[in-house]
Nucleic acid binder design. Structure first.
Lengths: 239, 239
DNA sequence: GCATGTGAATAGATTCACAGCG
DNA sequence: CGCTGTGAATCTATTCACATGC
């Protein structure tokens, strides 16, 4: 395979690379030098064919009859994920979620470094959260520039999310991870991903309900009940 | 379409229903009674054809030339998602993330109610977090039974995740949302979803890196650098 | 012999484009 | 006439199954 023409990794594969990465880190810790697609699949919670296909997109660095070299594969994947050096990240919004994220050990362990916490609330500015002091949103542009930040986490209330995203983009951020329960728009050159905690629960709820209450009180065949008082409330308040 | 044979909603559709739900709640608040697929698509951040196809799986309750009745659609979707009544949820692991989740207003606003916080650490048991006191893991089975819990959130460290999941399943939980950065195994009758915060950042990092550093210091064509000291560390510690 | 790598087959999701109906 | 509903076309992802090469 041509060294320069192994680009264009399918989205589904990209979203699994971090899983392999994590599994490989674990494996490396145990001083195991080689791993089969089967074992890797088991650790990552997928199937072996998928692992092989996925890894083949990176350029196929396995050895037939043997498996993959753990260290080498780790290096390849870090390379792809842009984790060969520590990446500075800022967090906008220092509510409860923002604080939890600020202290989340997993980011650091995976090569990300939270280099600033920002909040619009003047009362919060100056407060310490972990090792960092909260800074003002007004200093955003300077901070992004000086600390070479490309990635930002948005953990502000839904109402503020779009404005904050606009500000981040204007400041030069090119990737946003949005935790606010709100769809936000960004220009094409900016990468956006979202995590909505309530949505995850709702999806779970769907499948849970399907599998039928285990205790089986299978009430009357679920009719489209006469419009349950639908809206619960919308104020999103505390992130 | 047959009232009984409109089952089997595609996974991709299920994962978008909560998006529509949110958009519809917003719309309902504005006292708007009707909405087009186009408008709904815009609010949910998808395209109109997708909205129509998705909604058609629920049984097609729109009116041609007009659009969808907001209240009615809301009722249909809550129905599907099992949100017609408040669903009790427990959180296992009261570290920083657990606490943030415990206080997350979005859950309540979407029909979930956190009815217990559990931790294995005796020092934490009895501590108040928001409106709840932390309870002991030892009381898990009783709590699940008495409070009719089907859904649990796992926010414990990676090392403890599998054990906690096993305990939850044994206690009768049938749906788990896992925040621990670890693949966990559950029996078939249990629904599992995962949210891995570091993984989301890694995926973002991949695409960010792709789009090329905006400031373009396009260094030497990225060679598979001589194996960067791959493993950073694995201890996952503080969730 | 054994586990990778990959074409070919299948399944699933998205998009198109227009018929159908209020 | 406008907007839904949906087959058909397309694109993407997964899985199969086996030739390939260490």
């Amino acid at each position: 395979m041509d060294e320069r023409e192994r680009r264009r990794i399918p989205e589904a594969t990209v979203s699994r690379l971090p899983l392999y990465y994590r599994a490989l880190l674990e494996t490396a810790e145990r001083k195991t030098t080689t791993i089969s697609s089967e074992r890797l699949a088991e650790m990552a919670g997928v199937n072996a064919a998928k692992v092989r296909k996925d890894l083949s997109y990176l350029g196929s660095y396995g050895t037939r009859g043997v498996g993959y070299d753990v260290e080498y594969l780790l290096a390849q994947i870090s390379q792809e994920l842009g984790l060969t050096e520590r990446r500075p990240v800022i967090i906008a919004g220092v509510g409860r979620l923002g604080q939890a994220l600020a202290n989340y050990a997993g980011f650091t362990a995976r090569g990300f470094e939270v280099v600033a916490l920002l909040d619009a609330d003047p009362a919060l500015v100056g407060e310490r959260v972990g090792a960092l002091a909260v800074e003002s949103m007004g200093d955003l542009a300077r901070i992004v520039r000086e600390r070479a930040v490309a990635i930002a986490i948005v953990a502000v209330p839904a109402e503020a999310a779009q404005q904050v995203a606009d500000d981040l983009v204007a400041a030069g951020v090119t990737a946003i991870l949005n935790f606010a329960p709100k769809v936000i728009q960004v220009p094409d050159h900016v990468t956006l991903r979202k995590v909505d905690l309530a949505i995850e629960l709702q999806i779970l709820s769907f499948y849970e309900q399907r599998s039928g209450p285990q205790v089986s009180e299978v009430a009357a065949p679920v009719e489209p009940i006469a419009r349950p008082a639908a809206a619960l409330d919308f104020g999103e308040a505390a992130l």
